[in-house]
Simulated scan of single mutants.
Amino acid sequence: MIKTRRPLALAAAFAVTLLIGGSTVTAAAPATEDRGAAPASDAGRGTPPVPVIRATEVAKVAPLDPPSVFGHATVLEGPAFGPNGHLYFVDFTAPAGKPKILEYDLRTRAVKPVYTDATSRFSSLQFSPADAKMYVTDFDNGKIDRLNPDGTGFTTVFSGPVDGRKMVPDDIAFDKAGDMYIADYQGSPWDPTGRVVRLSADGTDPTVVQGGLSAPNGISFTPDFSGLWVSEYSLGREDQFMLAPDGKSVVAGNVGMSANTGLRGFDSNTVDAAGNVYQVVIGAGKILVWNQDGDQIATIAIPQEPKPEPLVSNLVIKPGTTDGYITVGGDNGGYIYKFRSLAPGIPQSNGGGA
């Protein structure tokens, strides 16, 4: 269960709201501050600044894509480590015939195209623990596809409507059995029709786990797989949903944590072995980090020079290490950045998604 600590009154604090058994309790949590900034005070008592972790560029891995819904920019997504230890990711804005799934060798820094087609627009990528195959979400066509790490064996696993409505699959996460949990990127603050949808490992039994969301985007399991962290893109809000034992519903006494920073554009997220949540803010060039109590404990900053307004979209922490990798796009192409995480990665340290 999530618990709050003593409120911290900082100049640009964000609200943390806990929904427990239908009751709402609001506390304050610290805003982002740079390391070395003057500490803020709480009723005359000093509070430590939130540290800033600086990410560094590793490699340019994709060219500038032609105009798309993001303008003349490249958007990379879904970094995940394959069975061979290489980093796989998708190019959300790649045109027909250009590489849409790519593979990056951390040792040689070589980038290799894995798959392309004429119609797909992949928004996330993840490897299933059930079969070690690669699963991708087709944002435009409402599909979940599966293929081998070398790009062969392409198969559509699911393409049907869920409760009579087509999905807009954004991010994907797997439980230990290989069942899929998908952020259905629909809805708005005034019409919250977004959902979290569950599919069995074989792509059957579609079930709405949670509805009433505003453009759900990032989705990651807690380390013990008892709950999900889900970001609502258009609200700039982080929610936690505790799951029933069968994983098909949210338990009646669920705990929902909403961390409202005043920012929008909450994109993908991930969780480390300590339960810390890393949340990308795509329009701000940063990643916010909270512990499992809802306290902001760090900010990961992506340098904006010489690439102004980087489109920071997703991240992954290599399992068993503190090596974190970030997909970054923008009007100069697509890049991989690296940072040091606060705790080691776990097998599902990637929620995927656009």
Rank of each mutant, 00 (worst) to 15 (best):
K133C: 04
K133I: 00
M134T: 05
Y135D: 03
Y135C: 06
Y135K: 04
V136W: 13
V136Q: 11
T137R: 00
T137V: 07
D138V: 11
F139Q: 13
D140G: 13
N141S: 10
G142E: 05
K143L: 13
K143R: 15
D145A: 10
D145H: 04
R146M: 06
L147M: 15
P149Q: 08
D150M: 02
G153P: 08
F154Q: 10
T156W: 06
V157C: 07
F158C: 02
S159Q: 09
S159K: 10
G160W: 02
V162N: 13
D163C: 01
D163R: 11
K166I: 14
D170A: 15
D170M: 06
I172Q: 02
I172K: 01
A173D: 08
A173T: 15
F174C: 00
F174V: 02
D175H: 08
K176D: 13
G178L: 14
D179R: 05
D179Y: 04
Y181L: 08
I182F: 08
D184P: 07
Y185I: 12
G187S: 13
S188M: 06
S188T: 12
P189W: 12
P189F: 09
W190A: 14
D191E: 13
D191P: 02
P192M: 05
T193Y: 00
G194I: 08
G194R: 07
R195V: 01
R195K: 01
V196M: 03
V197M: 08
R198N: 00
S200D: 14
A201I: 03
D202T: 00
D202F: 06
D202L: 01
T204I: 07
D205H: 12
D205C: 01
D205E: 13
D205S: 14
P206E: 03
V208L: 01
V209C: 00
Q210L: 01
G211R: 12
G212K: 06
G212S: 02
L213G: 08
S214V: 09
A215C: 05
G218Q: 09
I219A: 02
S220M: 00
S220R: 00
S220K: 05
F221Y: 11
D224I: 09
F225P: 01
G227R: 07
L228K: 08
W229I: 09
W229M: 03
W229A: 08
V230C: 07
Y233K: 03
Y233I: 03
S234I: 08
S234D: 01
L235W: 03
L235K: 15
L235A: 11
L235S: 11
G236F: 01
E238D: 13
E238P: 07
D239W: 04
Q240C: 01
F241E: 10
M242P: 15
D246E: 06
G247A: 00
K248C: 11
K248G: 14
K248T: 15
S249Y: 09
S249F: 10
V251P: 06
A252V: 13
G253N: 15
G253W: 15
V255I: 06
G256H: 13
M257T: 14
S258A: 13
G262P: 08
L263G: 02
R264K: 12
G265D: 04
D267H: 02
S268K: 00
S268C: 02
N269Y: 15
T270S: 06
V271S: 11
V271W: 10
D272P: 14
A274E: 12
G275R: 04
N276T: 14
Y278V: 06
V280P: 07
V281Q: 14
V281F: 12
V281M: 09
